[in-house]
Design a protein around this nucleic acid. Structure first.
Lengths: 206, 206
DNA sequence: CAGAAAACTACATCAAATGTAAAATTACAA
DNA sequence: TTGTAATTTTACATTTGATGTAGTTTTCTG
């Protein structure tokens, strides 16, 4: 499973990680907007121009691991068992997506500061919402493909959008009212249950 | 209700409208990213610097009327009648928010191109999602205030997020699959009904 | 009409992002 | 090992969005 990488590839990976580490450290230390790309590049010992051959923008460093969660969720949906109903699948997919946050050891240490950045810096908030939105599109299409008899594409979209939309808003409103990160996750979890219960009711007429 | 404006205010309004009109015309004609702020300012006969005393950024011109819909929705919620249940209120608020799009005559002509921009230009998509998200926060708080006995803040957030999240995703997934603007609105409307039905089921135990 | 307040303009400046061409590094085959 | 091709990095220039500032013009008020 693990490829043997040549020197070139290994160096590239090292530079990439150095850029990420330097960027996050600087962002935490002096703020995202107060940190320039030149400073990040200098801290990682490369030229400013090189930064942009690793990341298309300053924002992209923050979201370098944004696909982890969605990929996990997609895998869960693709591995649908014969007895699985769409709503259950969706529930499991979202749970596993959340779980992706705590999987990597080194990543785990990055997550808290990154989360804080994404929740507080306006441009990062916008970018995060965009990524989340596009991942929902993928999720809806995957859910429809996995359960074509149970859900058409529009229904799958409505379901995915409702569950994630509800969880997202509940989590962030709770944070806005002073909740801790744990309380925030719990608010999101409860909202997910809340919306899923509604969906189950709609989808399972007695 | 209409204030008598001095010459200064009238000129400011005229300049503002000139900037908006020039910007949208140029955006449509040659694309958002291909249009520079200098060009907009020149077309509106002001200096480039003056543009930024009317709009904080190039993006902001596109979203100059973004508060119309949310303000209408908030008004509907604030004017809750004695018999109104939270779910009905939410339904009406969203309908009226949509309706805001077709209310102004001159505005109506701007809406189609603006919509197209917001749906296709990445930075505008992100900004639009951010504005929508923040308006949902306002909506959730207003809904909770209007129906404090029926919904706590977390439930109101989950409900608002679910309904709007579902409608948004359904509408845009339908567009992504080649739907016309009318079909897109219809997809959003149906998703709203879909999620509301679920909420009603959850909130009205027999 | 005079003085105050506000708006506009002409700069200068900074940071993000892109293009380009030369230099350095790595890969690979003879 | 050495020569050469491919790739990466770098330095430099340029564009564009955005902000600061100082001075001029316009509008308001008494």
């Amino acid at each position: 499973m693990s490829e043997v990488l040549g020197l070139r590839e290994r160096k590239k990976l090292r530079t990439r990680h150095a850029l990420i580490a330097a960027a996050i450290e600087l962002f935490v230390e002096k703020g995202y907007e107060q940190t320039t790309v030149s400073e990040i590049a200098a801290a990682a010992d490369v030229s400013t121009r090189t930064f942009f051959s690793y990341f298309a923008s300053k924002e992209d460093v923050v979201f370098h691991n944004s696909r982890d969660g969605i990929d996990r969720a997609l895998r869960v949906i693709a591995e649908r068992g014969p007895g699985d109903r769409a709503v259950d699948l969706l529930s499991r997919a979202i749970t596993s997506g959340f779980a992706a946050l705590a999987v990597d050891d080194q990543l785990a240490r990055e997550i808290a500061p990154i989360n804080h950045l994404v929740l507080t810096v306006p441009s990062l908030r916008a970018r995060g919402l965009l990524l989340l939105f596009d991942s929902q599109q993928e999720l809806a299409e995957a859910l429809h493909r996995a359960c074509p008899d149970e859900l058409n594409l529009a229904e799958a979209s409505a379901a995915v959008g409702a569950v994630i939309g509800g969880a997202k808003l509940a989590a962030l409103v709770s944070m806005r009212h002073g909740a801790s990160p744990e309380e925030m996750l719990e608010a999101g979890r409860q909202a997910t249950e809340f919306t899923l219960a509604g969906l189950r009711a709609t989808f399972t007429p007695p």
